[in-house]
Design a binder for these strands. Sequence first.
DNA 1: CTATTATTAAAACGAACGTTTGATTAAGGC
DNA 2: GCCTTAATCAAACGTTCGTTTTAATAATAG
Lengths: 243, 243
Amino acid sequence: MSDNQINPDTRERILDAAERQFMEYGYEGTSMRMITSVAEVNLAAVNYHFGSKEGLLREVFRRRLTWLNSERLAVLDALEQQAHGAPLKPSQVLEAFFGTLLRIGEDESLGGMTFLRLLGRTLTDPSEFIRTVFASEYPEVIERYKLALFHAVPDVPKAEIVWRLHFMLGAMSYAIAGIDLLQVITSFELDNIPGKDSGHKSEARNLYERLMPFLLGGLRAPLPQFSVASNEQLGASDTTQEK
Amino acid sequence: MSDNQINPDTRERILDAAERQFMEYGYEGTSMRMITSVAEVNLAAVNYHFGSKEGLLREVFRRRLTWLNSERLAVLDALEQQAHGAPLKPSQVLEAFFGTLLRIGEDESLGGMTFLRLLGRTLTDPSEFIRTVFASEYPEVIERYKLALFHAVPDVPKAEIVWRLHFMLGAMSYAIAGIDLLQVITSFELDNIPGKDSGHKSEARNLYERLMPFLLGGLRAPLPQFSVASNEQLGASDTTQEK
DNA sequence: CTATTATTAAAACGAACGTTTGATTAAGGC
DNA sequence: GCCTTAATCAAACGTTCGTTTTAATAATAG
């Protein structure tokens, strides 16, 4: 009863199993034997199809990011074309960038929430190897959207926009990856419990509707009064004093 | 020349080495032999002093989080006391929470940026074991600040505030943990290069001054028009259509 | 001093790791 | 039929993992 599998694409089954387990246990925390056991393939199949464990991780990301980033560029192209050179609205740019991403979460064939969580989690991994995977996939998209944001929010200095783009990526990544942690930490009952399909809205859409106003508010926030030469302590308050 | 070390606290040297390497390579990616080799102690010392590798990680966090969270409570206590029951300003609450955190990044004796990065990175780790570490350290602080935010931002529904607290944690964690990734991804030159001490401002303070306006803007952002029963696609645009 | 405890040291434990090998099976061209 | 290529399989490779054991060394108390 265990050897009559007629092999519906071994490669894909490995990728699916790896995607899920890398998300759940991390790259180092997932062994080849765990993956091949879940995928119900032979242990040697991974090395045969992907060369190594690193090659497997690379392909797990590549098959999703290729779609994601080309889609992001296509959406931005379309928006800019129908704007006839006029700057886009900030909300349009953010919706193009984050909406495209979160659409993955609604479509299981694109990886669904499993891949989104893996992505959010992996972005905080500083290992050399993982960084090179993203470095080769992302620069063009980031560059295009950065420029679009420069034009969309002309009253915020460019350097500040780059910082805020960074913050926005973080808010999103973390919200996706750490969606369970919130429930560990807080006791508050959210009307739409993340992690389980609840109500009529998908988890991704629910997140999207909460995230967008937050990001927009942060992106267009008034500038900090520029460097007031403050030697006050971070976080104010004098309940504690340095030594 | 290798056995005349006069042992300036083996325990502390192990913790310091572990903190740095857990940050750099992750928990699973760091071996006991890596740690004890850097700390220049015997391999068995970790199990002697901390029982196990898990016990070591637990202590790495405990020695920092104990200070952090009691300090956060103290700062909030002081603010609320001098407000005489009046609600605090949103900026006060955020400064108390995030300022206290980022003060760690300025003080090497509290862990400095090394611990901040480890913290930001670990918060996205979904492993059962790591979750329990945080679950035991954080709930009281989160609860207190949550209530303070409810009072400080009365015109935003409570459920929405919890979501935004989550987003804020993410923006911060990610900004801390992924500070190098930004440079891989973007080619933009920031006036204050993170990762290296640049100019007169500390890395933590520079981050803090950029982060606060962003968080405030996001926290007080106008609500999304409530659930417009939209069946439009996420991210708009019709350049691509589902199947 | 001796007795006791705390700490360090070297060596080994079995288990699990990623990878490789060599045989076996399936499929398609000729 | 045979040959070639692709794919799968069981088994083993050598290495590294976290942990344990046993002995040696320092530190301290009586």
